[in-house]
């Protein structure tokens, strides 16, 4: 029985890779759905996190960015995104809020980070973005 199980499990990565391939084929569709999800599945857009580092970076003229992130359920999720974005030279402050399920970023004055890059970095951390808000939209709570 062990031998048959080993054979069955050897076949698993092949099937999983096929699923992975399908996911990649659908990647463009995911990107288009970001806006739709913002007004659909997600609750009202939460404002940027109110932490000392965030406030300090905003006071220094940084650009606020808030991303609603799917699948954020534990501190490992927060750690993954803090590490991933903390290494970027464009980022002055980062905070992941488990209650609001948001990634708050402040970009250094004059720096930029496109939505596509943020989306890719969140995927590198293992998660997905539902929507991104910038500027004034990131500073105040958005009605649903």
């Amino acid at each position: 029985m062990v031998r048959s199980l080993l054979i069955a499990l050897l076949a698993f990565p092949v099937a999983a890779q096929a699923q992975h391939h399908d996911d990649h084929q659908g990647a463009d569709h995911d990107a288009h759905h970001m806006e739709g999800m913002h007004h659909g599945e997600q609750p009202a857009g939460k404002p940027i996190a109110d932490t000392k580092a965030i406030k300090s970076a905003l006071n220094d003229g940084g650009e606020p960015v808030v991303a609603d992130v799917l699948g954020v359920v534990c501190d490992f999720c927060a750690k993954a995104m803090n590490k991933t974005f903390g290494k970027r030279k464009e980022v002055a402050a980062v905070y992941v809020d488990l209650d609001d399920k948001t990634l708050s970023l402040v970009l250094k004055s004059g720096a930029s980070l496109s939505d596509e890059t943020i989306d890719k970095l969140v995927k590198d951390a293992g998660y997905r973005i539902a929507s991104i808000r910038r500027g004034d939209a990131a500073l105040k709570e958005e009605a649903s």
Binding site: P13, E41, G71
Partner: peptide
Amino acid sequence: TYLAKRWFGADYQ
């Protein structure tokens, strides 16, 4: 170790 699939939701993973 291979992550074959991750399902995401606003409140679950």
